[in-house]
């Protein structure tokens, strides 16, 4: 199967700040790639280069087999972009927004109008079609934005953090739309800081941090890399956490993770229910503080923590640890 997106050794600096320090990506036609990383990791820079908005300093980028740097115009007619902010004209109605974008894709008046009607229907916006987008909710604007990027039936769709800022219900709705699109054969590059989102939608994932790829593979491959289980506690008083860590440390196979603000404790362990039973025995006397206990498989947050030394939604500037070396995960390259 050929690649709809191919990126080699992509580099970009902004002044003294290295946004991309050599990124490679390959997205097979018809698949969904989740590009994961914290704020400032370089996800948006990758999207901007691939959508012709930004010139890289070095490296190669191809979309649908066309060189993005040499023939940006041809690339533009084959892609759709939904950026981080819903780029809709708030004074135009939903219909007018879509019609305008259709015309600018050079679809012609009739086809633009037909497509606008179809997409408004499909994205549950038909009732609001003739209202200015100003009156739309955040979720409706995002849907209109995605509809606009789909109007010319792009072969490759770029979704830059499509659910950031949405309430949980709108997020679930958006996931259904994206899954639906992917099912229809559109190649999608999706950036997100929500690991659950990538887990739900993406076939393959690439994790970047500070402009470098630090891991790639499927969700299961990434989880297998972290391995083991997580013993998790939620407590009513954060003051109890240090003592608990000390009591449980002998059971840990890796450094326990304490989140004082959320009053949570996560301990990597190996073994199953017997570890849980042992842990509770050791905590005898502290159980009054505990209101939730669980044993679970690692999720992508754990993957991120293990790979980068900081949590996915941390501010990268606040993390002072050096970035981890790239870890090959037998992925989809």
């Amino acid at each position: 199967m050929s690649n709809a997106i191919l990126v080699e050794e992509l580099q970009k600096r902004f002044g003294s700040n290295t946004a991309l320090a050599g990124v490679d990506l390959a997205v097979p036609e018809g698949s969904v790639l989740g590009l994961l990383g914290p704020n400032g990791a370089g996800k948006t820079t990758v999207v901007r280069i691939l959508t012709t908005l930004l010139q890289p300093d070095a490296g190669r980028a191809e979309v649908a087999g066309i060189d993005v740097l040499r023939e940006p115009d041809r690339v533009r007619s084959l892609i759709g972009l939904t950026g981080q902010y819903a780029a809709v004209d708030e004074y135009l109605t939903g219909f007018e927004n879509l019609e305008m974008v259709g015309r600018l894709y050079r679809l012609g008046k009739r086809e633009s109008r037909e497509r606008a009607g179809e997409l408004l229907e499909r994205f549950d916006l038909a009732d609001a079609a003739n209202r200015p987008a100003k009156t739309y909710s955040g979720g409706m604007r995002r849907r209109l934005d995605i509809a606009a990027s789909l109007i010319a039936r792009p072969r490759v769709l770029f979704l830059d953090e499509p659910t950031t800022g949405l309430d949980p219900r709108s997020r679930l709705g958006m996931w259904e739309f994206i899954a639906d699109l992917a099912g229809g054969g559109t190649t999608i590059l999706l950036t997100t800081q929500y690991l659950e989102e990538a887990d739900r939608l993406a076939d393959g994932m690439v994790v970047i941090d500070r402009g470098r790829v630090i891991a790639r593979g499927t969700a299961d491959e990434l989880k297998a890399q972290v391995g083991g289980q997580r013993l998790e506690f939620a407590v009513t008083d954060a003051g109890a956490l240090p003592a608990m860590v000390e009591l449980l440390r002998p059971l840990a196979v890796d450094e326990p993770h304490v989140d004082e603000q959320a009053r949570r404790l996560s301990i990597p362990v190996s073994g199953g229910a017997e570890v849980l039973a042992e842990a509770l025995r050791r905590l005898d006397g502290h159980t009054a503080d505990i209101f939730d206990v669980g044993l679970r498989r690692p999720d992508l947050d754990d993957v991120f923590l293990a790979l980068t030394g900081h949590a996915a939604e941390d501010d990268p500037a606040a993390a002072d640890k050096t970035p981890a070396e790239p870890v090959p995960v037998g992925g989809t390259r």
Binding site: L53, R76, Q84, A87, D89
Partner: peptide, 10 residues
């Protein structure tokens, strides 16, 4: 972000 959208169009 409208200029970004326009710039990504052909």
């Amino acid at each position: 972000g409208l200029i970004d959208r326009f710039r990504s169009l052909p």
